[in-house]
């Protein structure tokens, strides 16, 4: 089979970009979408052209590095998988496929189809953790965790941090990502002490990064390669509301220890 690619080419953040057409060499339907891009890139390189820059790493749907908006949908036509798990058999011979980068102001473009998703990391730095030093942990079975909670926490924790939710949302909102993090830790008993502090810090950082807000369209959930539910957004909204109503903690008066 062969396809025509219309790929977003942009040298760097400050240069203008445009969609360019490429005719693929002969392809196998068993190729993954990224393998198809590899083949096209080899072809381009052999012709002395600059290969198409795209992000990828594990190629098994778990690292969250691959991105791409394929024919208007982040991670391609199928549900519950990432671009790297999309196979060419999902397309027909002669198809024209439009490939674009994830678009959002907090995801500045690096080159062609590669964007910078460090905004997600900064949200995590703000509070996406349980403060426990190495070595300070009690026995793992000292705190039982109801199976339902652990399972639900796992549903949220599966998030691979790819940013498809942002790419799909008409508001470029990162609520699904942030809520998955907040819910995962907020559902575990170990995460309770910092629950409200965490949600406040992470949501505020999310706002500071310039993501849009949630208008409950559900696009994020539909494209999420891990099918994370927007129920977690409701959970985060609730936690944040409680956090805001609780107000900032009372200042602790200083004092030396002897």
């Amino acid at each position: 089979m062969k396809v025509t690619l219309k790929v977003w080419r942009q040298k760097d953040r400050n240069s203008p970009g445009e969609l360019k057409s490429y005719q693929s060499p002969e392809l196998s339907p068993n190729m993954s979408f990224l393998e198809m891009l590899d083949v096209v890139n080899e072809h381009l390189a052999n012709q002395g052209e600059d290969p198409i820059a795209f992000d990828h790493d594990c190629r098994e749907g778990i690292c969250g590095t691959c991105s791409l908006v394929i024919d208007g949908k982040p991670h391609g036509p199928h549900k519950g998988i990432a671009t790297c798990q999309t196979y060419m058999r999902s397309f027909k011979d002669g198809d024209e496929i439009v490939v674009e980068p994830f678009r959002a102001k907090p995801f500045p473009l690096i080159k062609d189809l590669v964007v910078d998703r460090k905004a997600f990391d900064r949200i995590q730095h703000a509070g996406g953790f349980i403060s426990v030093r190495t070595g300070a942990a009690p026995d793992a079975n000292a705190i039982p965790v109801p199976k339902e909670n652990a399972d639900l926490a796992m549903d949220a924790a599966q998030c691979i941090g790819c940013g498809a939710c942002v790419a799909a949302c008409k508001n470029a909102s990162a609520m699904l990502f942030v809520s998955a993090k907040v819910s995962h830790l907020g559902l575990m008993p170990q995460g309770q002490p910092e629950r409200y502090r965490r949600v406040k810090a992470m949501v505020n950082q999310m706002d500071a990064e310039g993501f849009g807000s949630c208008t409950v369209t559900g696009s994020c959930e539909a494209v999420c390669p891990k099918e994370i539910s927007i129920d977690f957004i409701a959970r985060m909204n609730r936690d944040y509301l409680v956090a805001i109503l609780k107000g900032d903690p009372k200042a602790v008066r200083g004092g030396g220890a002897g």
Partner: peptide, 22 residues
């Protein structure tokens, strides 16, 4: 929300699974 996506997608596809109302 508008500011969060300064550049639009070129492919014309309805946002995935989002109702018209939403």
């Amino acid at each position: 929300n508008k500011a969060a996506r300064p550049e639009q997608y070129q492919a014309k596809v309805a946002p995935k699974d989002a109702s018209l109302a939403s």
